[in-house]
């Protein structure tokens, strides 16, 4: 599978995430779209990792080439988990006070 296909696909997913962040006002959905972006990146990293691994295998170089990208993906997942716990805590905290998770709330208050 040519690497470009993976890049296109991941960029498309990433862009969908970006569009979501820009167009939705519900904080949770915005957050979900961010997770979507992270996942697109993850897949792309794995694809690159396999690409480099394949190249290394062809050249007879070390068989573990490209493994660092998969490790990176692992770390991204780890960080995403931590981030989600905080993010949702913040969302719930905000909901307790405002009964809304509209991200434009402050702007409304200002006017």
């Amino acid at each position: 599978m040519p690497i470009q296909y993976y890049i296109y696909f991941c960029l498309a997913l990433f862009s969908i995430g970006v569009v979501g962040v820009l167009t939705r006002r519900n904080a949770i959905i915005v957050f979900m779209c961010i997770e979507l972006m992270l996942n697109a990146v993850n897949l792309l990293l794995v694809a690159f990792s396999k690409m480099y691994n394949g190249l290394a295998l062809q050249n007879g170089a070390s068989a573990t080439a490209g493994i660092d990208a998969q490790i990176f993906v692992f770390f991204i997942m780890v960080v995403a988990a931590a981030e989600v716990s905080i993010g949702l805590a913040i969302i719930v905290m905000m909901y307790r006070n405002t009964h809304s998770i509209d991200i434009n709330f402050l702007n409304r208050l200002k006017n």
Binding site: A27, I34, E83, I103, L106
Partner: peptide, 18 residues
């Protein structure tokens, strides 16, 4: 409320930039 809102905004923006 403002603190909450700020935290949420910061968080979302920060994650986006991540």
């Amino acid at each position: 409320m403002f603190s909450n809102e700020a935290a949420l905004k910061y968080f979302l923006m920060g994650s986006f930039s991540t």
